[in-house]
Design a protein around this nucleic acid. Structure first.
Lengths: 356, 356
DNA sequence: TTGTACGCGTTATCAC
DNA sequence: GTGATAACGCGTACAA
């Protein structure tokens, strides 16, 4: 092993014992090079697949890599390349929504598929407290990701501001950010709500209400707006029951309240499938049969839709597609494209089942 | 500005235009130093809060940081510190499970809370294809994370092997790895299943069956083993209906099959709440009332349990606690502790509601 | 074809 | 108190 101090400064570290007891030191390109009896440059050429290496050298190096168990250090590579080959996926939701919202999981998987195809690593970051907000902002600033996909951004969100300041390639899913120049992929909540409400009216209902969830978010407000438009002159505000969340429980309680106030209601647009499922339960309690006495429609076409009794008529939300398109937009921007062209609105076909 | 080539090599980069059109160059410590008219060393001292800086220098530097919009480059910091202040959370599930399993979300949130409290960034990595497996393995090797929490590892999983080879601090949640030395946090599936089955028997049922899901995973197999133990001599294999997944649909179809084969069944242990919810639907179809004709118990105490009609008697699974304990174990190991002491089994209280 | 040397942005250790 | 300067591990022009 050579006497201490005789070799270059670089090798001194072998003698330094770090505080965690005996965590094995990582092999470096340097180690591979000495093991194979070549220089670091040649090793680099083999690793990156750039030609101009003799067969003998390549062989020796590949053997050495296996022997010392070399794995490239991504942090170093990121530093020198100014590229991490990673894209962040930021989820900023209160607990309940993260757990209940079936769309987020699908958006996540859709984005991952697209990124994976381009050999990018998706790193999902959860923002669940103020402390998280700050830390995630630091993380993004740190150059660990080449871009971000943001689900449900807040107005004037610190994270959005950081992204803007770094001019980090970004795509917003579902809820548009306040900056008009950013890429956005989503659906037409208002138009879809209008369409399915119209469809519900066409089944001959005369007293159609809505359980309107999450009016503080644009998706919630837009769905109510579409509902209002569809009814036109027939719109009656007393038939709208606002509830806080897109949840089963909100639907259950909302429907109970609506029934108590308006017993004659014969049609309901629930702001999401989970809400609709809760509404069905309330109707069952009240002895109303669906769709005979009351027609019910939902929104999302999530797993709820098919497991309800009767299965829900609803608006199909292309969640996986949203994630995929967002990922593709980010990758385009990483390659130098301008974001403003990416204002994508995906189709939302109506799926008609038995509940109306 | 200055004439080209006249300054040090370091400043040449200003002249180099990278291919992405006009992405703003990041400010560095160097920039801050020149702006404030001090050296890099002093700037470093201010950033890291180490004392020994004059008030005037500190003021000038803080102003400069604001002015040039400096944010530390985490990749560089990781490289020199050999620490990323990040912990990976690896989810390795087929689509359906990731979307349906209510526990994963809670485990995730629990882990994030614990990591966040120690100012660690949690990065969630999804493994959804062979390609993902390889890329995630590379990512872990790259030094981007100081440790990992692994949910549902496979036997002989490439990721597990990489973790082992790097001796990366790790904690396995739910499904124990094949290596006995690793940290593990989970529940006693077999004991819990035995307890709740016994409890169901005590309500006076005489023909008790089980819808046994996911027998290819140890959780599924263990729950069946517990059920078998509880019945002892009364165990009758024809009352066990195996189904592939912990899903609503599996429960629905499993219960139909069980009823067709054994119409006299008066008690059912469903391997999860989702399965139990499906079973309730099948019983309703068949005109059996719960709990009068048939007692039903589940497992997980997830959102399903309270939204069923009647609400489920079930085994409470402390999902958030699992995530939290796993995170704490990883953090301890990052600080140099040995993993083997962390073989944690959390309590699973029985929650008795109306379904049995 | 291969080796050398420099720089990526930090932190940390020295002399001054 | 403060300013040089050596690492960290890797990519890559450039020289040999």
């Amino acid at each position: 092993m050579g006497s201490p101090g005789s070799s270059t400064g670089r090798d001194d570290r072998v003698l330094i014992v770090t505080s965690p007891p005996s965590r094995r030191r990582r092999a470096t390109v340097h180690d591979v090079a000495t093991e194979a009896g070549v220089s670091r440059g040649t090793v680099g050429r083999v690793i990156n697949g750039d030609g101009y290496v003799s067969a003998s050298a390549r062989e020796a190096i590949e053997a050495a890599i296996k022997k010392v168990g070399y794995v490239p250090n991504t942090a170093a590579r990121t530093l020198v390349m100014q590229r991490s080959q990673a894209v962040g996926f930021i989820v900023h939701e209160p607990h309940s929504l993260f757990l209940e919202d079936p769309n987020i999981g699908e958006i996540l998987l859709g984005a991952n598929t697209a990124l994976s195809a381009s050999d990018y690593q998706m790193v999902c970051l959860i923002v669940d407290s103020d402390r998280d907000t700050e830390r995630v902002a630091r993380y993004l600033s740190g150059g660990f990701v080449d871009g971000v996909i943001i689900v449900s951004a807040r107005q004037d969100d610190p994270i959005t501001r950081v992204v803007e300041r770094l001019s980090l390639p970004a795509a917003f899913v579902g809820h548009p950010p306040d900056l008009g120049t950013a890429a956005f992929v989503g659906i037409d909540n208002r138009g879809s709500a209008r369409t399915i409400t119209t469809r519900l009216l066409e089944t001959g209902r005369t007293r159609v209400g809505m359980i309107a969830a999450a009016l503080d978010r644009d998706s919630g407000a837009d769905r109510l707006a579409g509902f209002t438009e569809a009814l036109g002159a027939r719109f009656d505000p007393t038939l709208v029951e606002p509830v806080p969340l897109y949840s089963y429980r909100a639907g259950l309680e909302g429907m109970r309240a609506l029934l108590a106030r308006e017993p004659l209601v014969d049609g309901v647009f629930a702001a999401s499938d989970a809400v609709a499922a809760g509404a069905l339960e309330a109707l069952r309690e009240a002895g109303r049969s669906v769709p005979e006495d009351v027609g019910v429609v939902g929104f999302d076409d999530s797993a709820w839709a098919t497991r309800c009794q009767p299965p829900l008529s609803t608006v199909h939300q292309p969640a996986a597609g949203l994630g995929q398109r967002a990922a593709e937009s980010v990758l385009r921007q990483v390659d130098g494209a301008e974001p403003e062209v990416d204002q994508i609105v995906l189709e939302t076909p109506i799926v008609w089942r038995g509940s109306a």
